[in-house]
């Protein structure tokens, strides 16, 4: 695609998805550049969550899902990769903060431990580093044995980000990560995204167009209508998509002429 600069990390080619007989996502072809934030926007039911859940194959947890087309991570077909390894490389932060009912330390150490790390000192290092990267360390460093569920919503979401960082992924998928948070917590997450993109490729689904405009480098706009369920309308640099959209539908959506 002409607008993406730098190395492309994720690429979909003619990717389609069905829930049973229902085609939830029509042919989608796009490149997601590395070390950039790519926002996926569009109305409810346009397939944006389905699309983002493609990259770590979370859709496979739903019975009756079929896919077609290609999805590549660093040039490799993700459907040929071991799904457990793929999910280590492609982390995910969910809409609702979902820390485990464990301590803060155990939440962050969960992934590395599951991958076989036993060394206490090494684990402690990883936990500290991950919490620092998620901008949570200063708030919790004195009380790592507190339950993750005792934190505020915004802190819980940053804990989930730290938990994801702890397994050292290449890509972080975020499915409306701030939609359950208040504006201040949202702002913190948005600031965090800017520092994280130095090391990670980030794909973020958001309902909030101001947020997409503020944080992302590239924007993909998905739409659904009577004739076609989820499909890609337009994709390009965020500044261009927001100021000079090529499609009338995009312009209408961005200026609020649809719900």
């Amino acid at each position: 695609m002409e607008e993406t600069t730098g190395a492309c990390r994720l690429r979909t080619i003619g990717y389609k998805l069905w829930y049973g007989d229902f085609c939830a996502l029509h042919e989608t072809t796009l490149d997601i550049p590395s070390n950039r934030i790519t926002a996926i926007i569009g109305p409810s039911g346009c397939g944006k969550s389905t699309f983002i859940r493609t990259f770590n194959r979370m859709n496979e947890l739903i019975p009756g899902v079929r896919v077609a087309g290609e999805v590549l991570l660093d040039g490799q077909d993700i459907f040929r990769l071991d799904v457990v390894e793929l999910r280590r490389l492609v982390g995910m932060v969910f809409q609702k903060p979902n820390p485990f009912p464990k301590t803060i330390f155990d939440n962050v150490a969960y992934g590395p431990r599951a991958h076989g790390l036993r060394d206490r000192n090494r684990l402690a290092e990883i936990v500290e580093k991950s919490l620092r990267s998620a901008a949570l360390w200063d708030e919790v460093k004195d009380d790592l044995s507190k339950s993750g569920l005792a934190l505020s919503g915004g802190q819980q979401q940053r804990l989930c980000i730290a938990r994801t960082l702890a397994v050292e992924p290449e890509v972080i998928l975020m499915d409306e990560p701030a939609s359950a948070l208040d504006p201040i917590a949202t702002l913190k997450i948005e600031e965090l995204l800017q520092t994280l993109k130095k090391d990670y490729t980030i794909v973020i689904v958001t309902h909030n167009m101001q947020q997409a405009a503020r944080v992302s480098d590239f924007t993909a706009f998905f739409m659904t209508d009577e004739n076609r369920s989820g499909h890609l309308i337009e994709y390009g640099p965020t500044s261009r998509v927001f100021t000079n959209p090529r499609e009338k539908t995009t312009e209408d959506y961005i200026s609020g002429r649809f719900s």
């Binding site: 979370m58 793929l86 999910r87 485990f100 969960y110 991958h115 397994v167």
Partner: peptide, 27 residues
């Protein structure tokens, strides 16, 4: 046990067995 725990664990690259023994059964 909330579905979110299950998804959160699997999304970290753990196997189904690890998810069952480390998150679901303790919860």
């Amino acid at each position: 046990v909330p579905r979110e725990y299950r998804e959160g664990s699997l999304a970290l690259g753990t196997t189904r067995w690890q998810t069952i023994t480390r998150v679901i059964l303790p919860s």
